[in-house]
Each structure stands twice: as structure tokens, then as C-alpha cells.
Design a protein around this nucleic acid. Structure first.
Lengths: 343, 343
DNA sequence: TTTCAACACTACCACGTTTTCGTAAAGCAA
DNA sequence: TTGCTTTACGAAAACGTGGTAGTGTTGAAA
């Protein structure tokens, strides 16, 4: 068990100074060829690699970015991480991941843990609790310290920073419109109770699509689900009443549960009930019937977010007076993936 | 935009030495109460937090652990990360994640990137390519440098280190046995072509269960799938021939595809075909019919792996002569979750 | 008056790098 | 020999911490 070798050890071993070793390895012309080659050979033999921590301390750059997300066992978020990881890797960055578990306190704790020099910037999606509380001081704080932050998907207008989102409203609009186009008149919206930004926007899109088509906007057809397990009861009651002939669900878990409930009641999808879900996940692809979804490319969001963050990080070097704060909000395209749950 | 404040800046501002500031903040009795309180107040006001990088350099501890996995958009792996993250957080560690994409080169690159001081230890699952090549020099290297490594799920006997696995063989045995118990005689195994350790073990368990029950072990009933998309054809041919009445699939993706194919052919699951899948993922829970699975708790594996790693890391401090290399292999329990795809 | 301890603080080192500046030795022209 | 340039290297600072050892002052005991 040999510990990693350092410049100092090499210097001692070869009886030269640390600077000589450092310069030799960086191929400085200051050092005579003989010494240079000797040092390089020695370093190679002992597999010398500069210590990242020391470099970080010296350069005030860690070459790593922090990701804070509400959940990780979640198709969408894991695709985002994947997207971030790809770009980060390309640029030589590592990614540090923290899960807030949709808890405000954890989010704050995680940010504080990473903000003390461990990373060069954040990519984050707000926890439900944070969105509900509307308390973003932890984020303002790191931004004020000059650390770049990119928010994605679950964002807030209260913070000025780069953002990557999808146009939830028009994506929802498009989905509902397609249901209307196929002749559906009574379209239900199945959403969450949480006050999450995206939920609100999707509801807006739903409403607008109805009104634009001269259909009534009926509050009773907005079904707010607290817990997936209780979803079934609510749904089946409404289905019994034949209250709706189509459903727009804000996530695929709701959608699949609705389909299963309908099937149990002898209703056929899509004949008796058309279903569209937000988020193109793995369930939609493999459920029976497969589910028409609004695709929301997490990978693209991740790619974009990582690029934006890294650009910010590396721009700081040059223009270190006052970084120009012309923050941008990137909108990622969505599209409807038609599958068997609609006709 | 105020940069983070340092001990040095506080010292200068209050016109005392750096050591005085450091000691005041650590509540050392060496420092008079007046000065101590003054410093503490000042530090609190400016929200002083020690710089992690400097601490890491000094303590030769980064308080972060590296995770290297083949994929991240993958239910099982994301649950493992979740498990690791929970424990890591509890002990004050951060997790750095790298994805090998099942590529040997990326795995090596990622390990090298992290091994130069960025982390205190690794938790990893081998990439397919690495398992196929049988080249583990990058892992031996970090271990030789004294960095603890814990491997999980996709492990190898060629490396001596702590491991967390499930008993793939007996889990497979149990699954096949349950099919036999319900009267199935012609049981197919649907597996991958890759030479991944777990695949081999599951095949062994399958074979043993058959033989122990006096059933013939027929190579033709072992279906090796190269690509999920081509799976359907192979399966349907065999189904036409009524070659089997039950399937044991090594993952849920295969299982759901098989079920869909059978349905298309007018076969009923489980009446005409019983299906059991390895890995209890989200698809199994939501497919129609729901799929009986061998649960493999990724979260537990993650918990355990993280605990083992952190214990190793923190044990090194005390016993720094020669750490006792009594490596352990932890076997996580599995159990069969009966759902609709079997009777 | 001397000595000793307590007090309150500072100096210095180490962690591993990079980089700027300095300088000794050698070479060369005058 | 003197003065100047070049070559080839070394010393030291800096990044931010924290611990050990040291230092100067004060008051009191001997």
C-alpha cells in the first residue's frame, strides 16, 4: 500500500526543488532537458497525478458542479442527471448529487454543505416544500456569493438566475387540444394538490384550451390527487357518473392508475376514455395500452442546464469585474407522443 | 456580490492574528472572552463557514464518496444511489456520481478523475465491458493506494474488497421453484447475451431448480436477448410452438415485452403463460397484468454499501499501521413478490 | 527584587500545487 | 578582469485551515 506520490516526494528523491519538479512536469523550458526528462520518467514510473484538492485550493475552482433535486428514484430527474453528467464529463467536471427529498430543510442543508467551496455552481430543481413556503434565502445567498445557479423545471420567478424549463402551459394546451380534436368534450384534469409551479401552469394551459374551443371550464373536472393510492376511488366515482370521456393527467403514474381503474369498471381505453399524460416515462411505453404523452426531454434539459452553468463558471474568470447579469431562461421543446391511449 | 469571507479577512478586519480567529471560533479557552465573543459576533455577521477545500487538504479527508455505475436512468441503480445518499448524508458525506455507460474506458477515466484526492472511497458496480474484458487494473490500483472500495451487484471475484450482493442463484432458484410449484413444466429463461456475473448466477439457479425437480434442462429454452426490440420475434416463434408455459426473465423489461407479445397472440397471462421477472421495478407494479418479481432492494444495498465504506474510511484514521483486510461480502435478502402474472 | 505561573495572544508549520521572482554559475565579448 | 547575457534551477508566496509551540505581559508568591 503506497500512498499517492507528491511533488515534494519526487523532489526529495531526485534531490531537486519542488519547483523544478513542477516545471519539469509542465514541460517548462526553464528546466534543462536532462533534468526534465529524468523527472518526467520518475513521475511516470510512480504514476504521479496532481492532487485535485490542492489544485482546487490554488485555483479556487473545483471543477465540480452540485445538483440538488427533490428525488432521484424518478424517471424524469434521472434523465436530467444523465444529461448533466454527459456535458459535465465532456468539460472535465464532476457532479455532486444531493437529494432534498422535497424537504425545505434538507435543501437548505445540502446547499450549505456544498456552498463552502466544494463546487463551482449549482443546478437545481426546487423541492415542493420550498415552493410552498416561498422561502428562497438560501439560494439568494449563494448567488450573492458569486456562485452561479441554474434552475430547471421547478423554478421560481422570485430568483434571478439562468433557468431551463419547458413551456408547461402551451404543452398542456397542445395535449388538451388534441383530445378536443379527436372529438372529446368532457375532459378531466388530474393533477396534484401541491403548490408546485408546473402544476399551476399545466392547469392554465388546460383551461385555455377548453375556453378557446368554446368548451365549459368545470371546476369539478379538476381532480386533485393527494396520494396515488386514494386516486382510484375518486376516479371511479366520477367514471361511474360518466362525468368525462377523456383525461389529461399531469404525470404518468396518475395516468396508468386511471387506466387500470377504468379497465376494472369495464371501460375501454381509448374508446370510452382517452388518456394523455405529462412526462414521457418508462411506464407510458410499457403499460397496456401504451400511453400518449407529452414528452419532456430531461436529457436535453440536463444538457442545456449544464452548458449554461459551465459557461457562467468559465466566464467568471475573464470578466471578473462585474459579471453581466443578463440571465436567460431557456425553453425546451416538448411534443406529443401519440400512443394507444388516444385515438 | 461579496466573496466568502476567510479567517484571514476576519483577522485583518479585527486586527488580530489568524490563529486567534480560528481559536475563537472553535471556542478555545486560550482566547480571552472579550476577543472571543467579538470574533464570533463578527464571523456570524459575515456568515463565516470554513472552506471545505482547505479543510480537505489539511485533513486529507474530503468527506465525499464516489459512485460509479453503468447507468443512471435505471430503476435499480437509482434506488441504490438513493440508499447510498441517505446514509452518506447522515454521516455528513457528499456523493459524487459518475456514469460509466457500460464502457470500460469511461469507467477507468472516471475512476482516475476521482482517485486523485477528490474522494475518500468508491462504491461501484462494474460496467458490462469491464466484466467482459476481465481487466480490473484500475480498481486494484486505487485499492493499492489505500482507498477503500465497495462493490455492489455487478462484482468480480478477481478483486478483494467489500461487496454487497444478492444471492442471485438462490433467488433465481426460488423463483423457478415457485413456477414449478404452480404446476408449470416447461419453463423458459429469458436472459441477456452479455457476460455479466449476475446473469450467469441466475442461469445457474434456474438450472438447479429444474434438475432438483426432475425436470429436463433444455438449452433451447434459454433465450438470450441481444436487444429488447428483437426480443419480440424470438419469443413469438417459441410461443407459437407452445414450447413453454412459463417464463423466468432476468429483468422486468423482458418480462413486460413477453407479456405484450403473448397478449398479441391471444395467449392469456397467467393462464397460458406464467411470468416472473427479476428486479422489482416500477414497470412490474404498473403493467397489465402486474408482474410477479424477485425483489432486489436497491435501497438496502445502497444503505449497506455506504455503511461499509464509511466504516472503512473512518477506521483508517485509528489503525493507520496496516488496516486489517478482512473483507466482507454482504448478501442482501430477496423475496418473491407475487402479483398477477403468476397463479 | 526575583521567579513563576497564568493569561492572551502570535508565529509557524503542514497539506500539495503553481507561479513569480531571484540568483548562482557559466559563457562570452571587450 | 569586468560587465553582460543566458542557462538552470531554487526560494517563497499564495490558496484557507488548524494545531503546536512560543512569546510577551501581568500579577502574585517567594
Amino acid at each position: 500500500m503506497k500512498r499517492k506520490i507528491t511533488l515534494k516526494q519526487i523532489a526529495k528523491e531526485l534531490d531537486v526543488s519542488i519547483s523544478t519538479v513542477s516545471k519539469s512536469l509542465r514541460n517548462s523550458l526553464e528546466i534543462g532537458e536532462e533534468t526534465r526528462l529524468k523527472v518526467q520518467a520518475f513521475a511516470k514510473f510512480y504514476n504521479y497525478k496532481p492532487n485535485n484538492i490542492a489544485l482546487s485550493l490554488k485555483n479556487r475552482k473545483t471543477k465540480s458542479i452540485g445538483i440538488i433535486i427533490p428525488e432521484i428514484v424518478h424517471y424524469f430527474f434521472s434523465t436530467v442527471i444523465n444529461g448533466i453528467e454527459q456535458v459535465a464529463n465532456e468539460y472535465g467536471y464532476s457532479v455532486v448529487i444531493c437529494v432534498s427529498d422535497d424537504s425545505f430543510d434538507k435543501e437548505v442543508l445540502n446547499m450549505e454543505m456544498l456552498a463552502n467551496g466544494s463546487i463551482d455552481g449549482f443546478i437545481m430543481s426546487l423541492s415542493k416544500e420550498t415552493q410552498f413556503k416561498g422561502d428562497f434565502h438560501h439560494i439568494t445567498e449563494v448567488i450573492n456569493q458569486g456562485m452561479p445557479v441554474v434552475m430547471f423545471d421547478r423554478v421560481t420567478n422570485d430568483i434571478l438566475c439562468d433557468k431551463v424549463i419547458i413551456d408547461d402551459k402551451s404543452a398542456a394546451y397542445e395535449a388538451v387540444q388534441s383530445l378536443i380534436d379527436s372529438g372529446r368534450k368532457k375532459i378531466a384534469l388530474v393533477t396534484t394538490v401541491d403548490y408546485v409551479s408546473v402544476g399551476k401552469l399545466r392547469t392554465d394551459g388546460y383551461e385555455k384550451a377548453l375556453l378557446d374551443n368554446g368548451l365549459p371550464f368545470n371546476e369539478d373536472l379538476i381532480i386533485k390527487i393527494e396520494d396515488v393510492d386514494t386516486c382510484e376511488i375518486t376516479i371511479s366515482e366520477l367514471l361511474h357518473a360518466r362525468a368525462f370521456d377523456a383525461v389529461f393527467a399531469v404525470n404518468e403514474l396518475f395516468a396508468v392508475t386511471i387506466i387500470k381503474t377504468a379497465n376494472k369498471m369495464g371501460l375501454k381505453v381509448p374508446e370510452d376514455l382517452a388518456v394523455i399524460a405529462f412526462t414521457d416515462g418508462i411506464i407510458s411505453k410499457y403499460s397496456t395500452p401504451t400511453i400518449t404523452t407529452v414528452s419532456q426531454s430531461g436529457e436535453k434539459m440536463g444538457n442545456k442546464a449544464a452548458k449554461m452553468l459551465i459557461e457562467r463558471i468559465e466566464a467568471e474568470d475573464d470578466d471578473d469585474e462585474e459579471h453581466n447579469e443578463n440571465y436567460i431562461t431557456e425553453v425546451i421543446e416538448t411534443h406529443l407522443i401519440k400512443r394507444e391511449s388516444t385515438d
